[in-house]
């Protein structure tokens, strides 16, 4: 074919004549390329110096990033151009050697394992078995400190919250909630008194208190006295993945989980009517004491939050 085609035939790297076209730079005008590379190196250097200056005068973060990033990009651009246009253009070829060894080598390798090793074990089967048993027990026992020390057993902790008979409902600042505190349609996040500052209180006991009306409210059959004066309380942990159900759509009376958009109907036992949550939010039975404070009748009647194996 053409001359240029012959020049493109790959050859081995060694033993080339010095004037071989493959050792020439790929650029048609090497001087121009060299100039461009030189300019980018100089500009990169200037930007690095500017970075130093900006660092010393404690300039805004973006100036540091701009000069550092610009400098590195220019340096990189120049270096790539140098390699691509000013270095031997090739192409060169390298032979692959078969990775596999000869049949004899393979057989010798296998024989060493099977005959030498296997022979030894076959003759001492009992010892081999005992060693295997010992290693087996060791590997099980070795898991104990690795796994068991990591944390406590779950036991009953997933089944209960800190709500007790007579727990005062307090807000995040620890203030007790009074029956006159909420107007109809408003809500507050409550905790059993004393837990509002604890990790467990915030993660497990968090409950939404919504005032739906002025009269006692029945969200479901069998929960006749759970919501005095329209105060209903549900666990704030979404039954899907445990995000706080933090959005309240007041007109539709829906609690919405912002993570995966489960929606719970607060007038009807917080039954989910949209999204991936499989169960209603557990409802906390409330009463109002003689001084008008809102308190819990008892703990939730079921585990709060997402599902797990032991939950029935």
């Amino acid at each position: 074919m053409t001359e240029s085609h012959e020049q493109r035939t790959p050859v081995a790297l060694t033993g080339l004549r010095e004037d071989d076209p493959r050792l020439q730079p790929a650029a048609r005008h090497p001087e121009t390329v060299e100039r461009v590379i030189a300019i980018s190196f100089v500009l990169g250097l200037v930007l690095f110096a500017l970075f130093g200056y900006f660092f010393i005068v404690n300039a805004p973060a973006w100036t540091l990033g701009a000069t550092l990033g610009g400098g590195m990009s220019l340096l990189g651009f120049g270096l790539v151009a140098w390699g691509k246009y000013l270095m031997p253009r090739g192409p060169f070829v390298e032979e692959r050697h078969t990775l596999a060894n000869s049949k004899a080598d393979r057989d010798a390798f296998a024989a060493a394992i099977v005959e030498r090793g296997g022979g030894v074990i076959k003759r001492r089967k009992m010892l081999g078995g005992l060693l295997g048993g010992g290693l087996g027990v060791f590997s099980v026992v070795a898991l104990f400190p690795l796994l068991r020390s990591l944390g406590p057993m779950p036991k009953g902790t997933l089944f209960h919250t800190d709500w007790r008979k007579g727990s005062y409902a307090v807000d995040q600042t620890g203030r007790r909630i009074h029956q006159d505190d909420l107007t109809i349609g408003s809500l507050v996040t409550i905790f059993p008194e004393g837990t509002q500052d604890t990790d467990r209180g915030q993660a497990v006991d968090q409950t939404v208190l919504i005032r739906l009306s002025n009269a006692d409210f029945v969200t479901q059959k069998g929960r006749e006295n759970w919501a005095p004066m329209g105060y209903v309380a549900y666990s704030k942990l979404c039954t899907h993945l445990g995000c706080p159900v933090g959005l309240y759509e007041q007109q539709l009376e829906l609690l919405v989980c912002p993570c995966h958009q489960s929606m719970f109907d607060v007038t009807n036992g917080a039954i989910p009517n949209f999204g991936p949550a499989p169960r209603p939010l557990p409802q906390l039975p409330l009463y109002i004491d003689a001084s008008g404070y809102i308190r819990a009748q008892r703990d939730y009647d079921q585990p709060v939050g997402p599902g797990f194996w032991e939950r029935s």
Partner: peptide, 23 residues
């Protein structure tokens, strides 16, 4: 050849990341 190109490319990737970090 490859060493020049790949080192240059390391700088380009770093530079691009720094520009992202800046802007």
């Amino acid at each position: 050849v490859f060493m020049a190109k790949t080192t240059g490319f390391l700088f380009i990737v770093s530079g691009f990341t720094a520009l992202l970090g800046a802007f």
